[in-house]
Simulated assay, not measured.
Amino acid sequence: MERPIYRILHVIFALGLAHALFLLGQEGVRAYQLAQERARLEEALRQAEARVARLQAEVKAARDPAHLEALVRRLGFVRQEEILKRR
């Protein structure tokens, strides 16, 4: 014969099990969202590192006198001893 206390214990167990499954589901959703956020941040980091590499290349080129002279000549400047001829 089943005692009334066992019914209450079964209900409490069922509620505890439902609560544990709910929390487990919540943790699964949180883990999925964190994985997406991590992927987005890693992509942003890769883009930032690529930008840093490009800027370092520009700084290195800016320190090169030949590169600077080429930039200035594209703007139409000439040296004092040179004569500018139109095409």
Rank of each mutant, 00 (worst) to 15 (best):
E2W: 00
R3A: 03
R3T: 04
R3W: 04
Y6Q: 06
Y6P: 01
I8G: 00
I8V: 04
L9P: 03
V11E: 14
I12Y: 01
I12G: 02
F13G: 09
A14T: 01
L15W: 12
L17C: 00
H19M: 14
H19V: 13
H19S: 13
L21H: 12
L23S: 13
L23K: 10
L24A: 08
Q26Y: 13
Q26I: 11
E27K: 14
V29F: 02
Q33A: 04
L34I: 09
L34C: 09
L34N: 11
Q36N: 00
Q36K: 11
E37G: 09
E37T: 13
R38G: 05
R38A: 09
R38Y: 13
R40P: 03
E42L: 02
L45D: 09
R46I: 12
A48M: 10
A48V: 07
A50E: 01
V52W: 04
L55V: 01
Q56L: 15
Q56N: 11
A57I: 04
K60P: 08
A61H: 07
A61R: 02
A62L: 11
A62S: 15
R63Y: 01
D64K: 02
D64P: 00
P65E: 09
H67C: 01
H67W: 04
L68H: 04
A70L: 13
L71R: 12
R73H: 04
R73E: 07
R74S: 06
L75Y: 02
Q80L: 14
E81D: 12
I83M: 13
I83G: 08
R86Y: 09
